[in-house]
């Protein structure tokens, strides 16, 4: 834990100094989230719960997942990760520390945009527990999948290609659930992490018919745990294998 905190501290410094990365990671996902909320405010078709779910999935995809993959691929390319492994820090601590800025940034962005959903005339969530579960587990799943994808991403510039399949699965899952009546959401939809996050957000706002906390939470937790466990096992620390 101590090693992870130290590495995370260094990563925050690096992020702060790399203004372009900070801007892309902090501003663009929020801008996209604002566009989603603007479209929803105009049409009012999805409702606050579903719109909040889609915004959350967008942030998890772009900030936790895509930025996380890019950071890990970049640090590996500079041999920073390999160097850190000589320090005695565990592999998990190195990955957690390296991904901490992406994770925290996602949480801050989610706090801002979800706050905006509630403050801008939309209804307030009735039950915060599913929403918190969606944020925390969704971010862990996004970071775990980032480490997994980084295993197959030999350079940071390739991350825009290698993150596409899982990114589409995240956003596609959210849209699939979004256009399905809440009481008709199936296991296959919840198996996609974006689907489970969106359904949990709907539950927080108690959208009529949105039930199944256990299946949605279970699916998301399984995705998060599997992603983290597999990522730690298969992560490639050195490109010259």
């Amino acid at each position: 834990m101590r090693s992870a905190m130290l590495i995370a501290g260094a990563e925050f410094t690096l992020l702060y100094r790399h203004r372009m990365t900070l801007a892309m990671g902090a501003i663009l996902p929020v801008a996209l989230g604002l566009l989603i909320l603007w479209a929803e405010a105009d049409s009012g078709r999805a409702g606050s719960g579903t719109a909040a779910g889609l915004v959350l999935v967008t942030l998890i995809t772009l900030t936790a997942y895509v930025s996380g993959t890019t950071i890990l691929a970049g640090r590996r390319q500079q041999s920073v990760l390999r160097r850190l492994r000589t320090s005695g820090a565990s592999d998990t601590a190195i990955l957690v520390g390296s991904l901490a800025p992406s994770a925290l940034l996602t949480v801050v962005q989610a706090g801002f945009l979800l706050g905006l959903v509630m403050a801008s005339g939309g209804s307030l969530p009735v039950d915060l527990a599913p929403l918190l579960l969606a944020v925390v587990t969704g971010v862990v799943a996004g970071c775990g999948l980032a480490a997994l994808t980084a295993a197959f991403t030999s350079a940071p510039e390739l991350a825009q290609l290698t993150t596409t399949p899982i990114g589409v699965a995240f956003l596609g899952g959210a849209m699939w659930v979004m256009r399905t009546p809440p009481d008709e959401v199936t296991w296959s939809m919840l198996a996609l992490p974006g689907g489970a996050v969106t359904q949990l957000a709907r539950m927080a706002w108690q959208v009529p018919g949105a039930t199944g906390l256990v299946p949605a939470a279970t699916s998301l937790v399984i995705t998060a745990v599997l992603a983290v466990v597999v990522a730690v096992r298969v992560f490639v620390w050195d490109l010259r294998r």
């Binding site: 260094a10 500079q78 041999s79 390999r82 160097r83 850190l84």
Partner: peptide
């Protein structure tokens, strides 16, 4: 000391 430094360039 590794062949590639491995120190983060912007610290």
């Amino acid at each position: 000391v590794l062949q590639d430094s491995g120190c983060a360039l912007d610290l």
